[in-house]
Design a protein around this nucleic acid. Structure first.
Lengths: 336, 336
DNA sequence: ATGAAAGCGCTAACAC
DNA sequence: GTGTTAGCGCTTTCAT
């Protein structure tokens, strides 16, 4: 069975295509009787408009893209939920793309989008991203762009982040208050504003204790590679820390694996804290202290902002919104 | 800046649109010189074809939809990876949709697709789905369909599942071998073939021990609702089981919560096993015995099959492929 | 080897 | 209130 078109409906009813089109968009200028007849037949024939034709004609697709580094991550999973909630309400469709933390894939996805497939893009860039030309290209094409969480200084768009500095400060101070003095700080990607804020907070917290941050305790990992566990293990063995601050969940899970392997007890030998939205954090052994970002809210806020920008006719105002994280203290930071 | 079109390139070079079109698809009938000029200018102007125009004209979109119940679930997350791996290689795009286990959303998504947006659909139906007319409608429109994991008997398409019966049999026998005699069986949705296979295995395993399955120990939960935890708790309190077999991860996590609340020790008081691909299962307290489905392989197989069906001109042969699960024994089923 | 022209299915300006 | 027409950007006959 082929898809039924406006023309077929028009022919069957002896009216013109434009009348059918107008009737189905419930235009006020169509006779109520005709409208009924058309709508009924459309329903009967199970008419569904061809989205390509409509988009081609109207130059809008009522669709946005959501580009994230990794779907298998509770933070992004909840962001998606937030975005979808808003988009469902406002009748937009969401295309979800994941970059797997690969800059190449990020470019590929954006190239795919640039033809005009979407009206707007929501992105949390991958940790590899340094060259930002692909993002600027989006803006050049008048596709609206909003960044969230993993944002970049140099792009002129609205940005939604969490209060990374304040919460990392609080997290580091928690470790310090438990007596930790040799705290590893594990980053994922180096040039993201998000990571820099967290690192600055880490240093400032240590300074606030009258101590000097040891920069050799700070290490950047590339989440796009698989083989980093060996590096991490070597780093832990070399530094013999009494605590680890992870900026991303994946690193924290890696620490669990390594500590088990090395026979290091959490929290007795090493305390652990991480940015993470992992739902089962409370059931881990030991339960994991997390800084949970307001993922769902970030998704909702970002989507609302993007749609507002898409639909506004006036020059857009750039927003910079910060939402608060929640520090959830669990056993992994208990007094050893 | 507007998007550059074929016409603009044609005008600048003093050739016709069709020549440009052919040059850019690397047609053999275009002079090598002209082709070069056109391709260079296209690159220079950063030309990107309008996907709507092309799809409208060609009646194919090189895009497939992947519909899953929940993104926040490691099983589906890995399926996505498998699907994307195949699609990237074959130059297809993947639109990911989640139904949140809601039949209404499933219908809405499929209606959205029916206009011809995609060439094929990969679906794992939500546990609510009983009416299958929306799926048949896809087939009516000549959109290819492949079901995986959550499959339905009554739909005539290719299906990829895991060996649910055999692995549930093995899982149940594991519990029986540890001395468990009052094993709850928690289902998610009742009419899915997948669930029925698992339930049959559960019963058969008990029969094989010369025991009679107590049907009152089998209970179906609706994963689309939030408030089931109270039900689950009441059920556990009422039945006082010595083991629980969960068909989905979410129920197992619920069991952890409830056992903690009730002061029941896993595995001493209650043993626990579940179908799940949860990556941190090994770090849970206690570590969780899982039956892990070959998620990545399922995704790859399903995508390959779908693309083959899309591209084949001949009448399609229906495949029914089964892949093996892995039982990973951990502490939650240890001798108490 | 290249161009002219038709048309995919839809919307919207312009008639009447 | 309804029809006619043009055109969105592309591919693809059919000419030449």
């Amino acid at each position: 069975m082929k898809n039924v078109t406006l023309k077929e409906i028009a022919d069957q009813l002896g009216v013109s295509v434009s009348t059918v089109s107008r009737a189905l968009t419930d235009s006020y200028e169509i006779n109520i009787e005709t409208k009924k007849r058309i709508q009924n037949l459309a329903k009967e024939l199970n008419y569904h408009p061809n989205p390509f034709a409509a988009s081609l004609r109207k130059h809008v697709s009522k669709t946005i893209a959501l580009i994230i580094p990794e779907i298998s991550n509770n933070f992004f999973t909840r962001v998606i939920k937030g975005v979808e909630a808003v988009c469902q309400e406002k009748d937009y469709y969401v295309l979800i793309y994941q970059t797997d933390e690969s800059y190449q894939k990020e470019r590929r996805i954006i190239n795919h989008l640039i033809g005009g497939r979407v009206d707007g893009v929501l992105i949390s860039v991958c940790s590899e991203t340094e060259d930002v030309s692909h993002l600027n290209e989006i803006l050049d094409r008048d596709i609206k762009l909003v960044m969230f969480d993993r944002v970049l200084e140099e792009i002129k768009t609205s940005k939604i982040t969490s209060n990374d500095y304040e919460s990392a400060l609080e997290g580091t101070k928690l470790l310090l208050s438990k007596g930790c003095r040799k705290i590893l700080f594990l980053k994922a990607g180096s040039h993201l504003t998000t990571m820099q804020n967290r690192e600055n907070a880490y240093k400032d917290a240590i300074n606030s204790y009258g101590l000097k941050p040891d920069l050799s305790l700070i290490k950047t990992f590339s989440p796009s590679e698989e083989l980093e566990l060996a590096d991490l293990k070597a780093f832990i063995l070399e530094k013999q820390p009494d605590a680890i601050f992870c900026t991303v969940e994946k690193l924290a899970i890696g620490c669990y694996d390594i500590c088990k392997e090395l026979g290091l007890k959490i929290p007795q030998d090493i305390k652990l804290i991480t940015f993470s939205s992992l739902e089962v954090a409370r059931h881990l052994n030991p339960s994991l202290t997390t800084i949970a970002q307001p993922a769902y809210e970030i998704g909702k806020t970002a989507a609302n902002l993007l749609i507002k920008e898409i639909e506004s006719k006036t020059e857009q105002v750039l927003h910079q919104i910060t939402l608060d994280c929640t520090l959830i203290k669990r056993d992994s930071t208990n007094k050893g």
